[in-house]
């Protein structure tokens, strides 16, 4: 009897071990983690933005079903690509083969920000220089200033 009970305990423990391992690794990702990195193809916006669209709701339900099956983020994205094609991926370069366009997406805004910063810097330096040289608002150039001084002396009461 005691041997049978021991056997039963061992059986339950061996069955529970893999289940515990699965439970530890599952779920591997969340809807919130994925929905900003994929598109709602019909809405033309990232899924996280398309909250009310019925197509987006279906896509979310599909992702949740995959998460419940313990799929990883990469697996979910692969399944979405199989359903909707590469255009479902919101992040440039996510398709795997990084193209020139994928690089430009990051480089062009960075260049724009740098150029804007440089423009602001140049304008600021010029403005400072003009203030230093000209003395500030209402200050006349040297020749005009001297003429004004003469005139003031002439009309001095």
């Amino acid at each position: 009897m005691r041997r049978a009970a021991l056997l039963l305990v061992l059986l339950v423990a061996s069955a529970a071990a893999p289940a515990a391992a699965i439970a530890k690794d599952c779920p591997q990702t969340t809807l919130g983690d994925i929905e900003d990195e994929v598109m709602c193809p019909v809405c033309g916006t990232p899924l996280g933005v398309a909250s009310e669209a019925p197509q987006a709701q279906r896509e979310r339900a599909y992702i949740e079903r995959l998460i419940a099956q313990c799929k990883s983020k990469d697996d979910v994205k692969k399944a979405l690509v199989a359903e909707f094609g590469d255009r479902v991926l919101a992040l440039p370069g996510d398709e795997g083969d990084t193209s020139v366009g994928d690089v430009l997406v990051y480089v062009v805004p960075a260049l724009g920000i740098l150029l804007a910063a440089a423009g602001i810097g140049v304008t600021w330096v010029r403005w400072r220089r003009s203030r230093r040289d000209g003395g500030g608002p209402g200050t006349l150039a040297t020749a005009d200033g001297a003429r004004l001084e003469d005139d003031m002396e002439r009309y001095d009461l």
Binding site: P41, V42, Q55, R58, E59, Y62, E83, F84
Partner: peptide, 8 residues
């Protein structure tokens, strides 16, 4: 069937 989940 356009831009849809196959199962649905």
């Amino acid at each position: 069937d356009m831009l849809d989940v196959t199962g649905d």
